[in-house]
């Protein structure tokens, strides 16, 4: 990993993408690192495309602007691949993670990914429905991000998921999200 890792999330309003970026920032605080998490604020409507960003660094983060050249692009809703260019500004070695039912190879073709760009897919929506009965892909997406970036350990991430979801939700929902995070970690595939 480079000194500073920049992540761009693509999702739709109501999918928990902004929450995912926040949980990731909190989890990455360990080891004295500097973190940022911020969404692009527009009219907040369920279903509308949105972006959120993370920066994680061993140095103080002074930059206060959107990430233009992401190291990691995380797409929480595969239908966005048809409507926006998620590869915009990507580096030749950027990593893509897409929540989709499709095999990572198909996603790679769809993205027209370069040979040094890694492409991963995970069926985060299915995992979420199976674990806690709602189509909120953020927990398994976080598990997958954890696996493919190595920014944090799974144990650490699970602690943070418990902490942030614990404030709002019942034990059943928290357990479901923890399970979903673990499954995202285990089921993410490279193509």
């Amino acid at each position: 990993m480079a000194e500073t890792t920049e992540i761009r999330w693509h999702g739709r309003g109501g999918q928990g993408t902004v929450t995912a970026a926040k949980v990731l920032a909190d989890a990455c605080l360990s080891g004295g690192r500097y973190v940022q998490a911020f969404p692009e604020y527009g009219p907040e409507r369920a279903g509308a495309p949105l972006r959120a960003y993370n920066r994680v660094s061993s140095h103080e983060l002074r930059m206060h602007c959107p990430v233009l050249e992401p190291d990691i692009v995380a797409v929480a809703d595969a239908t966005l691949l048809d409507s926006i260019n998620v590869s915009e500004g990507a580096k030749e070695n950027s990593i893509f993670l897409v929540n989709t039912t499709k095999a990572p190879k198909e996603v790679r073709e769809k993205l027209k990914a370069g040979k040094n760009q890694k492409v991963f897919s995970v069926d985060a929506t299915k995992i979420a429905i199976e674990c806690f009965g709602r189509a909120l892909p953020n927990a398994p997406m976080l598990g997958a991000i954890c696996k493919i970036t190595g920014l944090i350990t799974l144990e650490h991430l699970l602690e943070d998921v418990k902490k942030s979801f614990g404030k709002k939700f019942s034990q059943k929902i928290i357990d479901g999200n923890l399970e979903a995070t673990k499954r995202g970690y285990e089921e993410v595939k490279e193509g």
Partner: peptide, 12 residues
């Protein structure tokens, strides 16, 4: 302090 850029961004 700057609205949204600081008020709503999470930072260490």
């Amino acid at each position: 302090l700057d609205g949204f850029i600081i008020s709503h961004s999470i930072e260490r």
